[in-house]
């Protein structure tokens, strides 16, 4: 049987009488690239915050990396990586300083940090920029570095919240190469995106509408199920039914 790194059952988050997340259930396998899609306001961010141990659910169950979101949020945080378009690195620290800082926060030993950071900088081709402030790097490089930093402590799962927004088309693809490589090494990828071609790169995709999961399958099966030529169409058909709109 495949190892499950995320298991959710009837997970719900209520704010007053508003069900941001309404009884969602799904499982994510180890090493899987799991796409988490939905219109603005569908409840993606709320669900992701719960899975990262940052927010308590109202009801339901969720285990992440083998830990309970109610009782062990701190253990969850140690075993995951997180990266978003909005927050990822400190712009006024250098490349090396960012790696050292985040490595330290996640409990990687100093000697290990030194060893791995040299490798990483070389692999990213940032040797000449290692001592430059991150703020001075082009967006594409920043995003690639941010992803590498998010998986630096070799977490079981990495959560990526719109990691490629605004990035040029070539860098966007290089970014996905890094995602594939990380997944092949056994890191589970949980990713949100507004680019529907990127939904095709996922092993499985969920689409949330108004707090509920309305579809969950491989891109190929979803296209068959909704008689659509591409994921854009699948998404449009589902999201169009949404009653609520929001952020």
């Amino acid at each position: 049987m495949e190892e499950k790194v995320i298991v959710c059952k009837d997970l719900t988050k209520r704010f007053g009488d508003f069900y941001a997340v309404n009884k969602i259930s799904f499982e994510v396998n180890k090493g899987e690239i799991f796409g988490f899609l939905g219109a603005n306001g569908a409840g993606k961010t709320t669900a992701m915050r719960i899975l990262c141990g940052l927010s308590h659910p109202t009801s339901g169950e969720a285990m992440v990396a083998g830990f309970d979101v109610y009782k062990q949020p701190e253990s969850i945080k140690k075993n995951i990586g997180y990266m978003s378009q909005k927050f990822s690195l400190y712009e006024n620290l250098t490349v090396v300083e960012n790696i050292e800082f985040f490595g330290g926060v996640y409990g990687v030993s100093s000697s290990e940090i030194r060893k791995r950071s040299d490798n990483l900088i070389q692999k990213l081709g940032l040797t000449a920029e290692a001592k430059k402030l991150v703020g001075a790097l082009p967006l594409g490089w920043k995003q690639k570095l941010a992803f590498s930093v998010a998986i630096f402590h070799q977490p079981r799962i990495v959560f990526l919240d719109e990691p490629t927004g605004g990035v040029d088309p070539v860098t966007r693809r290089q970014f996905w190469d890094m995602i594939y490589e990380a997944a092949a090494s056994g890191i589970t990828i949980f990713v949100t995106t507004h680019y529907m071609d990127e939904a095709e790169y996922c092993n499985r995709v969920t689409i949330m509408v108004d707090g509920k999961i309305e579809a969950l399958d491989s891109p190929a099966n979803l296209k068959t199920q909704f008689e659509a030529d591409n994921m854009d169409e699948v998404f449009y058909r589902l999201a169009r039914r949404a009653k609520r709109s929001g952020d």
């Binding site: 939905g38 219109a39 603005n40 927004g165 605004g166 507004h194 529907m196």
Partner: peptide, 10 residues
């Protein structure tokens, strides 16, 4: 339309 979902973009 940056950061806006497919439906709102259309």
């Amino acid at each position: 339309t940056t950061g806006v979902d497919v439906v709102s973009r259309k």
